[in-house]
Protein backbone atom coordinates (compact mmCIF):
# COMPACT_ATOMS: atom_id res chain seq x y z
CA UNK A 1 0.00 0.00 0.00
CA UNK A 2 1.32 3.44 -0.86
CA UNK A 3 1.28 5.60 2.24
CA UNK A 4 3.01 8.58 0.71
CA UNK A 5 2.12 9.77 -2.76
CA UNK A 6 3.70 12.74 -4.48
CA UNK A 7 2.14 13.61 -7.80
CA UNK A 8 3.88 16.01 -10.12
CA UNK A 9 4.91 18.35 -7.29
CA UNK A 10 6.24 21.77 -8.33
CA UNK A 11 7.56 24.50 -6.07
CA UNK A 12 8.64 27.79 -7.58
CA UNK A 13 10.39 30.46 -5.53
CA UNK A 14 10.67 34.05 -6.62
CA UNK A 15 14.27 35.13 -6.66
CA UNK A 16 15.36 38.63 -5.58
CA UNK A 17 16.11 39.59 -9.20
CA UNK A 18 12.48 38.94 -10.11
CA UNK A 19 13.01 35.62 -11.83
CA UNK A 20 11.79 32.22 -10.74
CA UNK A 21 13.64 29.27 -9.31
CA UNK A 22 12.06 25.85 -9.73
CA UNK A 23 13.27 24.17 -6.57
CA UNK A 24 11.06 21.14 -7.11
CA UNK A 25 10.18 20.45 -10.68
CA UNK A 26 7.49 17.90 -11.45
CA UNK A 27 8.34 15.37 -8.76
CA UNK A 28 6.31 12.13 -8.52
CA UNK A 29 7.03 9.16 -6.29
CA UNK A 30 5.32 6.70 -3.96
CA UNK A 31 6.40 5.17 -0.69
CA UNK A 32 5.13 1.81 0.47
CA UNK A 33 3.99 1.17 3.98
CA UNK A 34 6.81 -0.06 6.24
CA UNK A 35 9.58 1.11 3.91
CA UNK A 36 12.40 3.53 4.34
CA UNK A 37 12.53 5.70 1.25
CA UNK A 38 15.82 7.51 0.78
CA UNK A 39 15.77 10.86 -0.93
CA UNK A 40 19.32 11.48 -2.12
CA UNK A 41 20.84 14.36 -3.89
CA UNK A 42 23.57 16.98 -3.80
CA UNK A 43 23.15 20.22 -1.90
CA UNK A 44 20.46 22.35 -3.46
CA UNK A 45 18.83 19.42 -5.26
CA UNK A 46 15.47 20.21 -3.65
CA UNK A 47 15.41 17.52 -0.91
CA UNK A 48 14.46 19.82 1.93
CA UNK A 49 11.85 21.66 -0.12
CA UNK A 50 10.31 18.33 -1.13
CA UNK A 51 10.06 17.25 2.50
CA UNK A 52 8.54 20.59 3.49
CA UNK A 53 5.95 20.23 0.74
CA UNK A 54 5.11 16.74 1.96
CA UNK A 55 4.73 17.90 5.56
CA UNK A 56 2.51 20.83 4.66
CA UNK A 57 5.02 23.42 5.84
CA UNK A 58 4.96 24.83 2.33
CA UNK A 59 2.22 24.97 -0.23
CA UNK A 60 3.09 23.52 -3.65
CA UNK A 61 2.92 25.82 -6.65
CA UNK A 62 1.23 22.99 -8.47
CA UNK A 63 0.77 19.26 -8.16
CA UNK A 64 -0.41 17.39 -5.12
CA UNK A 65 0.73 15.09 -2.39
CA UNK A 66 -0.95 12.90 0.16
CA UNK A 67 0.19 11.27 3.38
CA UNK A 68 -1.77 8.42 4.89
CA UNK A 69 -4.56 9.21 2.43
CA UNK A 70 -4.87 12.86 3.48
CA UNK A 71 -4.25 15.59 0.95
CA UNK A 72 -1.45 17.89 2.04
CA UNK A 73 -3.09 21.05 0.70
CA UNK A 74 -6.67 20.56 1.74
CA UNK A 75 -6.32 18.44 4.92
CA UNK A 76 -3.18 19.86 6.51
CA UNK A 77 -4.25 19.15 10.10
CA UNK A 78 -5.00 15.50 9.32
CA UNK A 79 -1.62 15.16 7.65
CA UNK A 80 0.07 16.63 10.72
CA UNK A 81 -1.66 14.08 12.90
CA UNK A 82 -0.16 11.11 11.05
CA UNK A 83 3.27 12.66 10.62
CA UNK A 84 6.44 12.94 12.68
CA UNK A 85 8.89 15.46 11.29
CA UNK A 86 12.55 15.73 12.10
CA UNK A 87 15.35 17.81 10.68
CA UNK A 88 19.02 18.13 11.48
CA UNK A 89 18.69 21.68 12.64
CA UNK A 90 15.37 21.52 14.47
CA UNK A 91 15.76 23.57 17.62
CA UNK A 92 14.44 22.66 21.02
CA UNK A 93 12.95 25.02 23.58
CA UNK A 94 16.08 25.91 25.51
CA UNK A 95 14.29 26.72 28.73
CA UNK A 96 12.17 23.58 28.92
CA UNK A 97 13.50 20.28 30.17
CA UNK A 98 13.51 17.36 27.77
CA UNK A 99 10.63 15.80 29.69
CA UNK A 100 8.54 18.99 29.67
CA UNK A 101 9.16 19.39 25.97
CA UNK A 102 7.91 15.90 25.19
CA UNK A 103 4.80 16.39 27.32
CA UNK A 104 4.14 19.72 25.59
CA UNK A 105 4.24 18.22 22.11
CA UNK A 106 2.12 15.30 23.24
CA UNK A 107 -0.46 17.79 24.51
CA UNK A 108 -0.34 19.65 21.18
CA UNK A 109 -1.33 16.33 19.62
CA UNK A 110 -4.40 16.34 21.86
CA UNK A 111 -3.12 13.52 24.07
CA UNK A 112 -4.61 13.73 27.59
CA UNK A 113 -2.30 15.02 30.36
CA UNK A 114 -1.76 11.66 32.09
CA UNK A 115 -1.29 9.81 28.85
CA UNK A 116 1.11 12.54 27.69
CA UNK A 117 3.30 12.08 30.76
CA UNK A 118 3.23 8.31 30.33
CA UNK A 119 4.13 8.55 26.65
CA UNK A 120 7.01 10.93 27.45
CA UNK A 121 8.34 8.47 30.04
CA UNK A 122 8.04 5.61 27.56
CA UNK A 123 10.09 7.49 24.97
CA UNK A 124 12.61 8.60 27.57
CA UNK A 125 13.27 4.98 28.48
CA UNK A 126 13.20 3.73 24.92
CA UNK A 127 15.61 6.34 23.57
CA UNK A 128 17.86 6.38 26.64
CA UNK A 129 17.11 9.96 27.51
CA UNK A 130 16.69 9.24 31.24
CA UNK A 131 20.07 10.66 32.26
CA UNK A 132 19.28 14.08 30.90
CA UNK A 133 15.49 14.19 30.84
CA UNK A 134 15.43 16.63 33.73
CA UNK A 135 17.97 18.99 32.19
CA UNK A 136 16.94 22.01 30.22
CA UNK A 137 17.37 21.46 26.51
CA UNK A 138 19.77 24.39 26.27
CA UNK A 139 22.29 22.39 28.28
CA UNK A 140 22.27 19.25 26.10
CA UNK A 141 24.94 18.11 23.64
CA UNK A 142 24.17 17.89 19.93
CA UNK A 143 23.71 14.12 20.06
CA UNK A 144 21.48 14.33 23.12
CA UNK A 145 19.43 17.06 21.48
CA UNK A 146 18.89 14.96 18.39
CA UNK A 147 17.70 12.04 20.53
CA UNK A 148 15.20 14.33 22.25
CA UNK A 149 14.18 15.53 18.81
CA UNK A 150 13.50 12.01 17.64
CA UNK A 151 11.41 11.46 20.74
CA UNK A 152 9.52 14.65 19.90
CA UNK A 153 8.82 13.44 16.37
CA UNK A 154 7.61 10.10 17.73
CA UNK A 155 5.54 11.51 20.56
CA UNK A 156 2.17 10.93 18.94
CA UNK A 157 3.32 7.54 17.58
CA UNK A 158 2.71 8.68 13.98
CA UNK A 159 2.66 6.04 11.24
CA UNK A 160 4.78 8.23 8.93
CA UNK A 161 8.15 9.84 9.69
CA UNK A 162 9.91 12.44 7.58
CA UNK A 163 13.56 12.87 8.48
CA UNK A 164 15.64 15.54 6.83
CA UNK A 165 19.34 14.71 7.29
CA UNK A 166 18.80 13.49 10.85
CA UNK A 167 22.48 12.64 11.39
CA UNK A 168 24.02 15.85 10.09
CA UNK A 169 26.84 17.00 12.34
CA UNK A 170 26.69 14.05 14.72
CA UNK A 171 29.73 12.05 15.90
CA UNK A 172 30.07 8.41 14.88
CA UNK A 173 28.51 7.02 18.04
CA UNK A 174 25.50 9.32 18.05
CA UNK A 175 25.11 8.72 14.35
CA UNK A 176 24.96 4.97 14.89
CA UNK A 177 22.47 5.35 17.76
CA UNK A 178 20.13 7.51 15.73
CA UNK A 179 20.23 5.19 12.73
CA UNK A 180 19.49 2.20 14.93
CA UNK A 181 16.42 3.97 16.29
CA UNK A 182 15.23 4.76 12.78
CA UNK A 183 15.60 1.12 11.77
CA UNK A 184 13.72 0.03 14.86
CA UNK A 185 10.90 2.35 13.91
CA UNK A 186 10.80 0.88 10.42
CA UNK A 187 10.76 -2.62 11.86
CA UNK A 188 7.89 -1.50 14.05
CA UNK A 189 5.92 -0.84 10.87
CA UNK A 190 6.44 2.87 10.31
CA UNK A 191 6.87 4.41 6.90
CA UNK A 192 9.92 6.66 6.75
CA UNK A 193 11.24 9.15 4.26
CA UNK A 194 14.87 9.87 4.89
CA UNK A 195 16.88 12.51 3.16
CA UNK A 196 20.63 12.35 3.41
CA UNK A 197 23.76 12.91 1.45
CA UNK A 198 25.71 10.29 3.39
CA UNK A 199 25.55 7.58 0.77
CA UNK A 200 26.80 4.78 3.03
CA UNK A 201 23.95 5.53 5.31
CA UNK A 202 21.46 5.33 2.47
CA UNK A 203 22.97 2.12 1.18
CA UNK A 204 22.64 0.61 4.62
CA UNK A 205 19.18 1.86 5.51
CA UNK A 206 16.90 2.43 2.55
CA UNK A 207 14.49 0.02 0.93
CA UNK A 208 14.06 2.31 -2.02
CA UNK A 209 16.08 5.28 -3.16
CA UNK A 210 15.17 8.29 -5.24
CA UNK A 211 18.00 10.33 -6.72
CA UNK A 212 17.12 13.99 -6.85
CA UNK A 213 18.92 16.50 -9.02
CA UNK A 214 17.82 20.05 -9.86
CA UNK A 215 14.37 19.37 -8.45
CA UNK A 216 13.83 16.34 -10.67
CA UNK A 217 13.95 12.64 -9.91
CA UNK A 218 16.85 11.28 -11.99
CA UNK A 219 16.42 7.65 -11.01
CA UNK A 220 14.43 5.59 -8.59
CA UNK A 221 14.46 2.02 -7.37
CA UNK A 222 15.98 -0.32 -4.82
CA UNK A 223 19.74 -0.54 -4.61
CA UNK A 224 19.92 -3.61 -6.87
CA UNK A 225 18.00 -2.00 -9.71
CA UNK A 226 20.03 1.20 -9.40
CA UNK A 227 23.25 -0.86 -9.64
CA UNK A 228 21.91 -2.51 -12.73
CA UNK A 229 20.87 0.81 -14.21
CA UNK A 230 24.18 2.51 -13.70
CA UNK A 231 26.46 -0.48 -14.04
CA UNK A 232 28.26 0.50 -10.84
CA UNK A 233 28.55 -1.30 -7.52
CA UNK A 234 28.92 1.50 -4.98
CA UNK A 235 26.07 3.91 -4.46
CA UNK A 236 28.38 6.91 -4.61
CA UNK A 237 29.49 5.90 -8.09
CA UNK A 238 25.92 5.19 -9.13
CA UNK A 239 25.01 8.59 -7.84
CA UNK A 240 27.76 10.45 -9.67
CA UNK A 241 27.11 8.57 -12.86
CA UNK A 242 23.42 9.14 -12.86
CA UNK A 243 23.65 12.87 -12.29
CA UNK A 244 26.37 13.06 -14.95
CA UNK A 245 28.80 14.54 -12.50
CA UNK A 246 31.75 12.34 -13.45
CA UNK A 247 32.79 14.68 -16.21
CA UNK A 248 32.68 17.58 -13.84
CA UNK A 249 34.77 15.76 -11.22
CA UNK A 250 37.35 14.81 -13.81
CA UNK A 251 37.42 18.35 -15.14
CA UNK A 252 38.12 19.70 -11.67
CA UNK A 253 40.71 17.04 -10.81
CA UNK A 254 42.55 17.49 -14.04
Amino acid sequence: MDVVVADNLVKVFPTPDGREKRAVDGLSFRVQSGHIYGLLGPNGAGKTTTLRLLSGLMAPTSGSASLGGFDVSTQPNDVKRVLGFLTANTGLYQRLTARELLVYFARLHRIEPDASAARAEELINWLGIGDFAALRCGALSTGQKQRVNIARALVADPPILIMDEPTLGLDVLSNRIILEYIKRERDGGKTIILSTHYLDEAEDMCDRIGLLHDGKLVAEGDLASLRLLAGEERLSNIFLKLIHANEKVEAVVR
Binding site: L57, K80, T90, F105, L108, H109, N149
Partner: peptide, 9 residues
Protein backbone atom coordinates in the same frame (compact mmCIF):
# COMPACT_ATOMS: atom_id res chain seq x y z
CA UNK B 1 11.67 25.51 16.88
CA UNK B 2 9.11 26.96 14.50
CA UNK B 3 9.21 24.04 12.08
CA UNK B 4 8.40 21.48 14.74
CA UNK B 5 5.65 23.71 16.04
CA UNK B 6 4.16 24.20 12.58
CA UNK B 7 4.04 20.46 11.87
CA UNK B 8 2.01 19.95 15.05
CA UNK B 9 -1.71 19.58 14.38
Amino acid sequence: TLESLMVSP
